[in-house]
Design a protein around this nucleic acid. Structure first.
Lengths: 197, 197
DNA sequence: TAACTCAATGAGTATATACTCATTATAAAT
DNA sequence: ATTTATAATGAGTATATACTCATTGAGTTA
C-alpha cells in the first residue's frame, strides 16, 4: 500500500508546509531578503530545520514566491471573463494589484537583487495581464473610442505608472496607508484620459 | 597666513578627492552597495584610509551621490533655456537621462535600500525636471495642442515609463546596450501621442 | 637637528548570516 | 523488545564586510 504515510512522513510534509507559509507572511511584512534565522524563529523551528527542507535560502524564497505568483496568476486569468472594455479591465487589474500590494511592492523594490529564476515569475504574471490588455485595446481602437497606439507601449505605460506609485509609496502615502487604495481612481481615470481620442 | 597649506593638508584633500572620484566610478560600474574594501582597492589606498576621510560607508556614499546629483541637476536646469514645447522638452530630458543612464539605473534599482538622506537627492532632481515639465504642459494646453491633464499625473506617467525601462533594462536590451539610446524615440513619440488631443 | 604631529597603514575586532553536522528523540521495522 | 531509520536540533563553521587602533614614516615646528 504505497499511499499509507507514517507519522514521520506526514510530520515532515507538515513542517515543510508550515515553513513555506510562515516565510510568505514574513516576506510580506519584512521583504524578500529576510534572513533564514528570522523565518525559523517565526515558524517556531530550529534554524537548522530550514535546511533540512530547503537546500538553500534561495530555494525557500523560490517556493514562497512561486506560491504568491500562482495565487495572483489565477486571479489575473479571471480578468478575461467579461472585460473587453479597457476602463473596466484596468480597474479590475488595479484591484488585483491592490489586493496584493505588499507582494508587488516588495517584488518591485527588490527584484534586481533576486535570483534569476524568481524574476521569471514576474514576467509570467505580466504576460497574463498583457494578453487581456491587448484584446481590450484592440477592441477600443476598432470601436473608435481609443487612439491607435502600440499595444506594447500602452501597456508599459500603464505598468510603469503603477510600479512608480508602488515603488515610491512612502512618498505618496507617508502614513503607510495603501497607495493603490488611495490613488486607484486617479490612476485609472488619468490613464484612460490618455488613451482616449 | 591662513591659506598657506603644507604638503600634508594638500595630500589629505587630494586623497579624499581621489576616494570620492574612485567611488563614483565604482558605483557606476558595480552599484551603490559596493563594499568599502573594493573602493579602497580600486583607489589604491588601504581599507582603513577610507575611514580616515569618511566616518561611515554611508557618508562616502552620500558625498558621491551628491556629486552625481549636482552634475545632473545643472544639466536639468539648462532645460529651461528654450524649451517650452513639450516634445522638445521631453526629448531633451530623456537625452540627459541617457547621458547618465548608469547612474539612474543603479539609483532606481537600489533606492529602497539607500539611506534616507540620499533619497532626497532624487526628489531634488525630479523637482527640477518637474518645474520645466509643468510650464511646457500648461503652454501646450493653452495652445490647444495637448489634452487638459493634471500636471502631476502626466509627469508621473512620463517618469514611470522611463523608470520602467531603466529598471527592466536587461529585459529590453539583453546585450547590455543602452536602453535609452535604443528606445528614446519610441518612448518620446508614444508619450507625446498620449498627450495630444 | 631633535621633538612633535598627523596622514596613512593593515592587521585585528565585531557582527551578520548562510549553511553544516554530530547528537537526540521518536517512529518504524525486525 | 531490540534495532534501525530519520526528523529535528542547535552549537559550530565559514564568509563577508564595516569599522578600530596601535604603529609607521614623512612633514612640520622649535
Amino acid at each position: 500500500m504505497e499511499n499509507v504515510q507514517g507519522k514521520r512522513q506526514l510530520q515532515k510534509v507538515a513542517t515543510r508546509e508550515h515553513i513555506i507559509e510562515t516565510a510568505m507572511l514574513v516576506y510580506l511584512a519584512q521583504g524578500f531578503s529576510t534572513p533564514t534565522n528570522i523565518i525559523a524563529q517565526e515558524a517556531g523551528v530550529a534554524h537548522g530545520t530550514i535546511f533540512v527542507h530547503f537546500p538553500t535560502r534561495e530555494n525557500l524564497l523560490f517556493h514562497a514566491l512561486e506560491r504568491f505568483a500562482d495565487n495572483i496568476g489565477e486571479k489575473l486569468h479571471g480578468l478575461s471573463v467579461s472585460n473587453s472594455d479597457m476602463e473596466v479591465l484596468i480597474r479590475a487589474h488595479i484591484e488585483i494589484v491592490g489586493e496584493n500590494e505588499a507582494f508587488y511592492k516588495n517584488l518591485i523594490r527588490e527584484i534586481s537583487s533576486l535570483p534569476l529564476d524568481t524574476r521569471s515569475l514576474l514576467v509570467f504574471l505580466n504576460s497574463i495581464a498583457s494578453h487581456h490588455f491587448s484584446i481590450a485595446l484592440q477592441r477600443g481602437i476598432e470601436d473608435g473610442k481609443l487612439k491607435k497606439l502600440s499595444v506594447h507601449m500602452a501597456y508599459n505605460t500603464w505598468l510603469g505608472l503603477i510600479h512608480y506609485y508602488l515603488q515610491n509609496s512612502e512618498f505618496f502615502s507617508p502614513n503607510g496607508e495603501s497607495v493603490i487604495e488611495r490613488y486607484k481612481d486617479e490612476l485609472v481615470n488619468s490613464y484612460i484620459d490618455l488613451l482616449k481620442k
